[in-house]
């Protein structure tokens, strides 16, 4: 990498975020319940997401993986009639309370969606959007952030000559890496990924997995995937969800080699779901 990025030194917002009780787990979830209307989608979830680890969330369709992920950045409330109880802390701060600013939370917690969703703007503007929203105006600074983020997302070499072209001139796989770069541009603590490669071909999938492996030195990642091999390849820990509950959560190598619950074993061996 040629540029070294100088971030604003005083990260006051982050210090606000880092509560003194905060230890290793970036996210602590205790007794989380969630209802869509009257449908009980998450039941008594207890789960920690550790700093600079990749946590994979697996489970059959409809078991609540996306719901859980969207609770972590409170996007779940956007659907309307949602009731939440229990405790979720991010760096020691209760995120479900009224006092939590969702904008601040989401500036610390990025999200990558199943279908790439770049804005209908140029490649540059897509990446610069987050920093601009959060108050960075300096052009040189923005240029640096854009380049840095695109490099981290392993996209720089492919797009450096056409930064002003529409994001929609990119292939699906490139668009998804652009969305990851867009996330990285606000320098988040955590990135939540909801089946980020399910719309991609194997080569693009491989590239995204590679980049997850490199950025995890820097960011904490929670990833939902239907692909067992992917979970096994890239994650440090894996949580298995079933019907809104966590059946088992362990180190990935342990969970895949010697699952303690029969249902986990059945699922990872493709016997149901």
């Amino acid at each position: 990498m040629t540029t070294t990025l100088v971030r604003p030194t005083e990260d006051a917002k982050l210090r606000v975020m880092k509560n003194e009780n905060w230890t290793k787990a970036v996210y602590e979830t205790n007794g989380l319940n969630l209802w869509y209307g009257t449908a009980h989608a998450l039941k008594n979830i207890d789960l920690s997401i550790n700093e600079k680890e990749v946590t994979a969330i697996i489970g059959p369709s409809g078991c609540g993986k996306s719901t859980y992920l969207k609770t972590l950045n409170r996007m779940v409330e956007n659907v309307g009639d949602v009731t939440i109880s229990g405790n979720v802390t991010f760096m020691g701060n209760n995120i479900l309370g009224k006092a939590m600013s969702v904008e601040l939370l989401r500036s610390k917690v990025g999200m990558v969606f199943q279908k790439p969703n770049p804005f209908p703007k140029s490649i540059y503007e897509n990446v610069a959007y987050g920093p601009k929203i959060h108050g960075i105006r300096n052009k040189a600074m923005l240029d640096m952030i854009v380049e840095d983020s695109l490099r981290k997302a392993a996209l720089w070499d492919e797009v450096k000559d056409r930064l002003n072209k529409s994001a929609y001139s990119l292939s699906g796989g490139q668009q998804q890496r652009l969305c990851i770069a867009r996330c990285l541009a606000v320098d988040p603590e955590v990135i939540l990924m909801d089946e980020p490669t399910s719309a991609l071909d194997p080569v693009s999938t491989h590239k995204v997995e590679e980049l997850i492996r490199t950025i995890k030195n820097d960011v904490t990642i929670a990833i939902v995937t239907h692909n067992m091999q992917q979970a096994a390849r890239i994650s440090d820990r894996t949580a298995f969800f079933l019907n809104g509950e966590i059946v088992e959560c362990d180190r990935t190598s342990t969970l895949f080699s010697t699952p303690t619950d029969e249902r986990t074993e059945d699922y990872i061996n493709g016997r149901f779901g």
Binding site: M75, G110, F113, N117, P120, G130, I133, R182
Partner: peptide, 23 residues
């Protein structure tokens, strides 16, 4: 999905409306 992308980056409803949806 554009709005979701924008909210997920921490923009407010108004920023999303003016900077993403309107353009």
């Amino acid at each position: 999905s554009f709005r979701e992308g924008s909210y997920a980056l921490g923009s407010t409803r108004f920023e999303t409306a003016i900077k993403v949806v309107f353009p």
